[in-house]
Amino acid sequence: MDRFDLYRAETEIIDPPVILCENVTKDYVDGLHAVKNLSLQIRKGEFVFIVGSSGSGKSTLIKLLLREITPTSGIIMVNGRNICRMRSRGVCKLRRSIGVVFQDFRLLKDRNVYENVAFAQRVTQVPRKQIERDVPRILSIVGLADKYKSYPDELSGGEQQRVALARALVNNPVMLLADEPTGNLDPKNSLEIMRLLEEVNRRGTTVVVVTHNKEIVDMMQKRVITLNKGVLKSDKKGGYSHA
């Protein structure tokens, strides 16, 4: 171990990466190698794009990070904890520390904006007084303070995604995982969502965006991790790199 390795080891103990994947492989039962020997690190406060065409392993990586599935081999650490060996209580804690936004918003249609956001706190048993404090605050950050009584069907796609974002952020997660957050949005709304994500990142939350939207990636000029057939193809700052 040289001086550089020692320095890196010390840094990781003091301030571990938010995400650390070491030689992660995931094989499915049908023999498909979804992810192969993937190693990557995402540090606290980073804004990272994970890009790749379909079948590149992006979805599998999200499932692995959310501990929906476990890797066939390798280690995944989130906030310094090995999530592969977690029990169900640990998995709940892990998911509370990760805010997630999906392409299809996943809002509850029978509940209004306020209730959708408050739902995230209710199910994690946050006291009512805190919910009454947090929800209006987060709704004003995403610019929906005046629409708290509206139902999802009364909102535009961009607004629905902002509700989903508010729900993901209301519990102050360490990391925000956005899976194709602009997939169902027009360019104007996509840009608005990206600006919001940037704002969230500026406030200290690590943001990981999984996308194949080239324009957005090129415009944002952030760190881009490119996957191709489950293998890490490139990891650099800048625009979209075609695998």
Binding site: S88, R89, K93, R106, A120
Partner: peptide, 16 residues
């Protein structure tokens, strides 16, 4: 189904 999926995603405990 969707509500339960969101609950799992948000980190609701199994018993909850």
């Amino acid at each position: 189904k969707q509500e339960i999926s969101i609950m799992k995603l948000i980190g609701a405990t199994d018993i909850f």
